[in-house]
Design a protein around this nucleic acid. Structure first.
Length: 524
RNA sequence: GGUGCUAUCGUCUAGCGGUUAGGACAAAAGAUUCUCAAUCUUUAAACCGGGGUUCGAUUCCCCGUAGCACUACCA
């Protein structure tokens, strides 16, 4: 029984924006760590110098900060947006750990558990063409150019000839990977190839070696990662054995993949572009290829909605609860309840979550969030004149019909600006031939109205309509068009209340003038 | 091709031998209303196929099928 303190790590590669699937992996690691009072580490796996993308590291750390996934050790972004490194097991970028790895590579070499290989990419390519399903392993290593076959290997190495170090995989051995989600997975070592562990070209190890060495040195107890790693897990087990670290080998949990919403396959950046939703937490400007990818934050999502949505994609609590705060997730999460099969990414549900979280916000909070948009639409001064309270009141009237703050303007615009044009569809349906006449008469009633409260207006206007023998719907809808410019919006007295008597009268007058002959023109 | 993983409504999933197979998103209908939404109610919607094991399989086992992943001097 392993009694060490739980330590997990999220180990992304800075090759671009952090994929939403990676975010979920980070989240599950975080939930697991917090639940067990353990540590959440962040390590950057940048052993492929050719795939490095500037800004990616900052992006990853900023994403996690935005989402509320806190890092206890390793690299993280502080409140000021600066990257800091905390902990005793650093450095936490693999590119800064070169010296550490070479020592372990040598150990394997000395113990004949690894060997030098001098085959060039061209030679390997030729072999692949020559032999169908070529694999660098026990059956083929003797015909390749390496220290097993070449007596002068040492001299070539000392002469500085480029080489790689390959792991010597013994054939015909059954390797059992105990997976916390899937149970025991057994595979035979014959299907494994002699993986490259180290390359002299950039003096860096490959992922496999660096990963094992670092997880060991950093005291990682649980490796929670995507299912795409499952096939290489046996190799990792072999490496732990080769180093003699079996006793402290972490436990593995391979998470199901996030799939495309339609069709099949892993969710990719292209799917987001194609289907029109973000697959990244934050907007990302890729300096390497010049592309811009949209993000959840910029699309108006709340981090808690993204977290809640993602948490349920592949994990489910025992009950029927849908809404989870981070604290609830921490206390209820368990790897046993992570599903084994891949989850199709359901963007619509993500929207629903945001709608729910938006309803939870106070009107004042939403008014604050809406302010920049309002300023852009009607100007700083107009916003000031209206006042915070009134904006909050308007939002309170409309918030339940939006999922994003950004949708508020198109729902509320008529509260702030008089209609400039009138929606044709609404006119066709609701603006009748009699409407101008009705509005003229209504105008007189409204002008005579002293008490402008919703109750008083209701008590005056409704009986008046009945007395006149007009249809309630006909008059009210025409009235609504005058005020809103379309057949939409909240209850009409809520609108008159916000606009006030003068503005209501002004809008009706303008509408009468401009829509005088509209009904006839539209052929109603 | 090889190896591995997986398989319940359209989607996310509950179920851990005996259930009218439950919930949520999406969909549809109704209610409400001066409109559009929202809301509420309701409806429709699933155990991949075939063998076993068992008194009894959605559930356990095997085979098939399908999907996915991996198969680099990428992670």
């Amino acid at each position: 029984m392993d009694t060490r303190k739980v330590r997990v790590r999220f180990a992304p590669s800075p090759t671009g924006a952090l994929h939403i699937g990676g975010v979920r992996t980070a989240l599950y690691n975080y939930l697991f760590a917090r639940q067990h009072d353990g540590d959440m580490l962040l390590r950057i796996e940048d052993t492929d110098s050719t795939r490095f993308v500037p800004g990616a590291e900052e992006y990853i750390l900023e994403s996690l900060r935005w989402l509320g996934i806190e890092i206890d050790e390793g690299l993280r972004m502080n409140a000021e947006g600066k990257i800091e490194s905390v902990g005793e097991h650093g450095p936490y970028r693999q590119s800064e750990r070169r010296d550490i790895y070479w020592k372990y590579v040598q150990q394997l070499l000395d113990e004949h558990k690894a060997y030098l290989a001098f085959d060039t990419p061209e030679q390997l390519e030729a072999k692949r063409k020559e032999i169908p399903n070529f694999q660098y392993d026990a059956t083929t290593r003797n015909m390749m150019d390496n220290s097993l076959t070449c007596p002068q290997a040492k001299e070539r190495f000392l002469n500085g000839e480029p080489f790689v170090v390959r792991f010597l995989v013994e054939p015909d051995e059954d390797i059992v990977v105990h997976d916390l989600i899937r149970g025991d997975v057994t595979i035979n070592s014959n299907i494994l190839d002699d993986k490259v562990l180290y390359k002299s070209s950039d003096k860096l190890p490959t992922y496999h070696l660096a990963n094992i060495v670092d997880d060991h040195l950093m005291g990682i107890t649980h490796v929670i990662r995507g299912e795409e790693w499952l096939p290489s897990a046996p190799l990792h087990v072999l490496l732990y054995k080769a180093f003699g670290w079996e006793d402290t080998m972490p436990q593995f949990a391979h998470l199901p993949l996030l799939l495309k919403p339609d069709g099949n396959g892993k969710l990719s950046k292209r799917d987001g572009d194609r289907l029109g939703f973000p697959v990244f937490p934050l907007e990302f400007h890729n300096q390497k290829d010049g592309t811009v990818s949209s993000g959840y934050r910029e699309s108006g999502y709340y981090p808690e909605a993204v977290i809640n949505f993602l948490a349920l994609l592949g994990w489910h609590a025992s009950g029927d609860q849908e809404m989870f705060s981070m604290d609830e997730l921490i206390s209820q999460f368990s790897l046993e309840r992570v599903s084994k099969s891949g989850a199709k990414f359901d963007y619509e549900k993500g929207k629903w979550f945001n709608h729910q979280y938006l309803q939870l916000r106070s009107n004042e909070q939403l008014a604050e969030e809406f302010r920049p948009i309002l300023v852009e639409k009607i100007g700083e001064r107009a916003v000031k004149n209206i006042g915070k309270e009134k904006v909050a009141h308007i939002i309170g009237l409309m918030k339940e019909r939006v999922s994003f703050v950004s949708e508020l303007w198109e729902q509320c615009n008529f509260f702030f600006v008089a209609p400039e044009e009138y929606d044709e569809k609404s006119l066709k349906k609701r603006w009748k031939e009699d409407s101008p006449q009705h509005m003229k008469e209504l105008l007189a009633v409204l002008k005579a109205q002293k008490d402008w409260s919703a109750e008083a207006l209701d008590a005056t206007v409704l009986p008046w309509i009945e007395e006149k023998g007009y249809g309630l719907g006909i008059v009210m809808n025409a009235f609504r068009i005058c005020l809103v410019g379309a057949a939409r919006g909240p209850h009409i007295w809520a609108i008159t209340d916000v606009l006030g008597k003068d503005e209501v009268i002004r809008r009706v007058e303008v509408a009468i003038k401009r829509l005088q002959n509209t009904a006839a023109n539209l052929g109603c």
